[in-house]
Design a protein around this nucleic acid. Structure first.
Ligand SMILES: [Zn+2]
Ligand SMILES: [Zn+2]
Ligand SMILES: [Zn+2]
Ligand SMILES: [Zn+2]
Lengths: 154, 154
DNA sequence: CAATTGATGAGACAAGGTCTTATATTTGTG
DNA sequence: CACAAATATAAGACCTTGTCTCATCAATTG
């Protein structure tokens, strides 16, 4: 079934992230703690700059170096996905269990990012991944076009 | 059928591109002409920097501003696709008719970019595009993993 | 608490991409 | 074939994003 996501985000991601990083031998520092908390509250992706600004605004400021370093740790631990939506913009979002796996619609006009998921598509991607000269670790799908709002007042 | 691309690239793309730009009211300048010629000779994607260097080396140098401006024109005319493969690298490639349509495998380790195509996947993407709250103009699929060369000497 | 080791912040740095502006080309017209 | 008008281009300043280094700070350990 194809559907846009309307459910609220699960909240246990923060715990899972902290645990897994602890197991990987990381200490718990303030910057990391706050960034994880912020990410856990997101349902879809934010850019590094947006994350840093949100931190400074809502909790306490964290240096750019820390933001990128922690995102990289999280990415390596497969807790965060890096999403490139075009125009050189890179966004990051928490990876949730099977249920939360999704792909993205991007409006070429206003830049809006809309998550969606589809089981048939996933099956097809798995099938293709088997037939390809690469050991596939992950996949990205982006559908680009014009969103409802933009088509209207065009 | 899933397969890596082995055929040689079609060559009529340059004509099509020139025509369409002319129709859109653009004059024919040297920089544009050369960039189109270079792109037409490619089977897969190159970065802006690679394009500029190839131009300087093989034909005549073209300024960075021109490379980006022309790529943007071509992109708007749906003659060129922008492909973001990760690590902030953006590449550009000519869009060809049905036959040349393809997606990409990216090696997370060495960065190699391998084109592939699959009819079943295309059908599935079309199906999904109908069911989504966006008028879909194009789609991208990227499979990431480790290429044969990198898995070997790991 | 002291020592050790990892975490963080600040800013220098690099690369990729955008914007401005002066100059060069193209195109239409007399 | 000039010439004027309009577009295309080159060069480089500039901005944004992301990386790297290093000095400082905080968590852990005994
Ligand atoms: Zn998302
Ligand atoms: Zn929109
Ligand atoms: Zn390609
Ligand atoms: Zn490789």
């Amino acid at each position: 079934m194809t559907h846009a996501h309307d459910e609220t985000a699960p909240v246990d991601w923060a715990e899972r992230a902290s645990e897994r990083l602890a197991l990987a031998g990381y200490r718990r520092g303030g910057a990391r703690h706050n960034l994880i908390r912020l990410l856990a509250a997101q349902r879809c992706a934010l850019s590094a700059a947006e994350l840093q600004e949100a931190l400074a605004h809502e909790q306490r400021s964290v240096s750019r170096a820390s933001v990128y370093r922690i995102l990289e740790e999280l990415e390596r631990a497969e807790l965060v996905a890096r999403i490139e939506v075009g125009q050189g913009i890179v966004r990051f979002e928490p990876i949730r269990h099977g249920a939360g796996h999704h792909h993205h619609l991007v409006c070429d006009h206003c830049g809006r990012l809309i998550p969606f998921s589809d089981e048939g598509l996933e099956r097809e991607l798995e099938r293709v991944s088997e037939r390809v000269p690469l050991v596939v670790a992950e996949h990205d799908v982006i559908l680009r076009g014009e969103c409802a709002a933009c088509s209207e007042h065009a």
